[in-house]
Design a protein around this nucleic acid. Structure first.
Lengths: 174, 174
DNA sequence: GGGTACATGTAATCAGTTACATGATTTA
DNA sequence: TAAATCATGTAACTGATTACATGTACCC
C-alpha cells in the first residue's frame, strides 16, 4: 500500500486529477487525448488500470456514483499530492525519444522503392502541417497556464522543423 | 509459423540483420544503441526475444556456434527480406511521439517549485547540447548511406530546437 | 421505441523491462 | 590465476494494447 514505483502513465493520471479535482476515467481519457497525449499517448484501458492502481496505493480516492452509469470518480488524496510534488520537483536525466515509424522507414530507405520514400515524405508533410495547425490553434481556443502553453510552443517549433525536414526529403530523393 | 503481425522492434531487428548479413544479438544491441536507438531504444532482453520470435516465424535463420561462447547467429531469410520490403514500402499514418519526462514535468510545472523548473531546464540544455555534439560527429566518424544520414540530419535539427527551447524556458521562468 | 453514438469497463494477450545468473575473454 | 569486463541469456514481473461486452443517453 505504500510508495510503489510509479511510471510516467501514473504521473500523467495523477497530475491531471490534481488539476481537475474530481474526474472519471473517461474524462481523463479525453483530457489526455487533447494535451499530454500529443506527446505521449495511452489506450483507454491503461487509464482505467492506472487509476485503479493509484487508488490502491492511496494516491487517489475512488467513489462510485449511486445512480445512472455508476461511474467511478477519482480525486487525489493528500498523499497523492505529495507524491506528485516530489516527482515534479525531481530531476530527470533520460533523453527524449522520437518514436515515429516514418523516420524508422526512412532510416531503412535503401531497402525501399524511391517512389515509396517520396510518398512517405509527401504524406508526412501533410500530417505534420495539420498537426502544426492544431497546435497553433490551442492558445486561441483554450486557456492554459504558462507551463502548458510552453509545451504547446515546443510542439509548434517541432512541427515546423519536421514539416520542413520531410519537404527536404521529398526534394532530395526525387 | 506464417505472417505474424510484427511490431516496430521486430522491424528494427530485421532491418539491421538485413544490413549486416550475419549478426548476433549482442551486435544487434550495439548497433541499435548507436543508430535507431537514439530515437527508439530497447532493452537487451527484448532484442533476444524478438530475434527468437523472428526465427520462429521463418524470417531469420538461427544457427548456434559450435565453439567458444556458442552464440546464436542470425541471418535474414528470403521471406524475411520480403516481409521487410513490404513493410518499408508501406505508408504509416501514425504521428511522432515525443516521449520525454522533462517535457511532462514542464507541462505540470505549476505544481513545481520555480527553482526545480530552472534546474530542470539547465540540465536539459546540457543534455541536449551534448547529444547535439554526438549527432554532429556521426557523419565524420562513420560512413552511412544517404537515408541514415538524413535521419542524423533530423536529429541535429531537433537537438538544436530543443536546446534552444530549454534555454528559453530557463530565461522565461527566472 | 429502435437505432446510433457515447461511455464504461473487463479479459486475454502481447510487449518490454528489471533483476538475476553465468560463461568467456582480457588484463594485471 | 584472480579480478574485471564483456557477452549471453533466462525468469519473473509490469506496462500497455486489442478485442470484447455491455449499459446509457440521445435523436428520429
Amino acid at each position: 500500500m505504500e510508495d510503489p514505483e510509479l511510471g510516467p502513465s501514473a504521473y500523467v493520471v495523477l497530475g491531471l486529477t490534481l488539476q481537475h479535482g474530481e474526474i472519471t476515467p473517461y474524462e481523463l481519457k479525453q483530457r489526455i487525448a487533447t494535451s499530454v497525449g500529443y506527446f505521449w499517448s495511452y489506450s483507454h484501458p491503461q487509464i482505467y488500470a492506472v487509476a485503479r492502481k493509484l487508488a490502491a496505493a492511496g494516491y487517489l480516492d475512488e467513489r462510485q456514483e449511486e445512480t445512472g452509469r455508476r461511474r467511478k470518480v477519482y480525486q487525489a488524496t493528500e498523499s497523492g499530492r505529495d507524491a506528485f510534488r516530489t516527482w515534479v520537483n525531481s530531476s530527470s536525466d533520460n533523453m527524449t525519444e522520437l518514436r515515429d515509424l516514418a523516420i524508422l522507414k526512412l532510416y531503412f530507405g535503401k531497402f525501399a522503392n524511391a517512389s515509396a520514400i517520396r510518398a512517405l515524405a509527401a504524406q508526412q508533410v501533410e500530417l505534420h502541417k495539420a498537426r502544426l495547425e492544431t497546435y497553433a490553434a490551442i492558445p486561441q481556443t483554450r486557456s492554459l497556464d504558462e507551463f502548458a502553453l510552453k509545451t504547446v510552443d515546443l510542439g509548434v517549433r517541432f512541427e515546423q522543423v519536421i514539416s520542413q525536414f520531410w519537404q527536404d526529403v521529398e526534394k532530395e530523393f526525387s
